[in-house]
Amino acid sequence: MRDPHELYQLETDTDPTELRASVLVVSLGGFIDAGHTQRLLTSHLLESLEHTVVASFDVDQLLDYRGRRPAMTFDKDRWSTYADPSLLLYRVTDADGDPFFLLTGPEPDYQWERVIEAIHQLIRLLGIKLTVSANGIPMAVPHTRPVGLTAHATDPRLIADHSAVFGTVQVPGSIDALLHLRLGESGEDAVGFAVHVPHYLAQAEYPDAALTGLEAIGGVSGLQLPTTGLAAMAGLNRQEIAREVASSSEVAEVVADLERQYDTFMEGRQHPSLLATDVSELPSADEIGAEFEQFLRENSRPDDGGESGPQD
């Protein structure tokens, strides 16, 4: 492996020993982030809290530009802007004035093991004791019930209050998941949260999921993270969803079916699991629309002149 230190450079003249903080929040995307959970959460942190860039990564070594081309703007007769991708480590100050680190940017396409070793170097250099992340996954759950999440950790004591909802499953890898695996192998503490997003909202922004992820990160890390902005956004989003559901008896029936399924599951009755046990059951971003349309057709009833809304 080439020297991982060559992948990043410090962007401050301050002695690293003066920058130390115990928590690192990682936001590097992955193969799925339903409800734009991670993006909303990360944007909220950077918009709400004071922060400075501590280190930057050389993305030219890590990204496949042709696989996901950065946006450029053509203005009449010239190219005017380029949305150059960046992978940055921020030092952020929480609401109580305590520092933590936030690593955010596009998930590297190449050199995963080298990137992880570079992150590990920064963890040791900056005195980080806990690494934590959160993202969204699509689930067959209704938006009218509490947002759930699946927790995982390198040490079970870190998530003692969370019950396991999955058995053994095999899914496509992500650099975030591999980072957690490698940190666990080296005896480091790391916690991750997969927030359950209604599958019919997976392509849309779902601030309730970001809010749940933010609260989970604060709970495990002890950081005081502001929630007001996200909570307000989530409230407006719930109102919009309610209007859309109320305008369609078919959608209302689908939601009612999911509510009954969810409630039955939570009551512990014998019922097909709400939880996908194979990644193939999780709809991709391109499949969500078609899947929901099919779901509507299968659950809608012919108009018989009577009530068309959900039945108790």
Score class of each variant (00 low, 15 high):
residue 218 G to L: 04
residue 251 V to I: 01
residue 216 A to H: 04
residue 207 P to M: 05
residue 282 L to D: 01
residue 274 L to Y: 09
residue 262 Y to Q: 05
residue 230 L to R: 00
residue 248 S to P: 14
residue 212 T to I: 01
residue 278 D to Y: 09
residue 212 T to M: 02
residue 227 T to H: 02
residue 233 M to W: 06
residue 195 V to D: 08
residue 198 P to N: 10
residue 289 G to C: 08
residue 285 A to G: 04
residue 282 L to I: 04
residue 293 E to F: 01
residue 268 G to W: 06
residue 215 E to H: 06
residue 291 E to V: 12
residue 265 F to T: 10
residue 216 A to C: 03
residue 260 R to A: 07
residue 294 Q to N: 11
residue 290 A to Q: 08
residue 282 L to M: 04
residue 260 R to D: 05
residue 287 E to Y: 06
residue 269 R to C: 09
residue 260 R to L: 01
residue 210 A to Y: 00
residue 218 G to T: 09
residue 254 V to Y: 14
residue 244 E to N: 15
residue 239 Q to A: 07
residue 252 A to C: 07
residue 229 G to Q: 05
residue 272 P to K: 09
residue 281 E to T: 15
residue 208 D to N: 15
residue 224 Q to M: 04
residue 287 E to Q: 13
residue 276 A to Q: 07
residue 205 E to R: 15
residue 242 A to H: 06
residue 261 Q to I: 08
residue 204 A to F: 09
residue 248 S to I: 09
residue 243 R to G: 05
residue 256 A to V: 08
residue 269 R to E: 13
residue 276 A to C: 13
residue 279 V to Q: 11
residue 224 Q to E: 10
residue 237 N to R: 01
residue 246 A to N: 15
residue 283 P to H: 04
residue 237 N to L: 02
residue 199 H to F: 11
residue 294 Q to K: 14
residue 268 G to F: 07
residue 237 N to T: 04
residue 268 G to Y: 07
residue 202 A to D: 10
residue 225 L to P: 00
residue 286 D to S: 05
residue 226 P to M: 03
residue 259 E to M: 10
residue 259 E to P: 08
residue 279 V to P: 13
residue 233 M to G: 09
residue 257 D to P: 00
residue 202 A to N: 08
residue 271 H to Q: 12
residue 254 V to P: 14
residue 218 G to E: 03
residue 215 E to M: 04
residue 222 G to E: 12
residue 276 A to P: 02
residue 282 L to S: 02
residue 200 Y to F: 07
residue 252 A to Y: 02
residue 207 P to F: 03
residue 201 L to D: 09
residue 215 E to D: 07
residue 223 L to W: 06
residue 290 A to G: 12
residue 225 L to W: 00
residue 282 L to K: 05
residue 264 T to W: 03
residue 272 P to A: 09
residue 288 I to V: 12
residue 263 D to N: 15
residue 223 L to P: 12
residue 274 L to F: 12
residue 226 P to D: 00
residue 264 T to L: 03
residue 231 A to K: 04
residue 211 L to D: 10
residue 201 L to I: 08
residue 201 L to F: 13
residue 255 V to C: 02
residue 264 T to K: 08
residue 226 P to W: 00
residue 241 I to A: 03
residue 266 M to G: 09
residue 208 D to C: 10
residue 290 A to K: 06
residue 243 R to F: 02
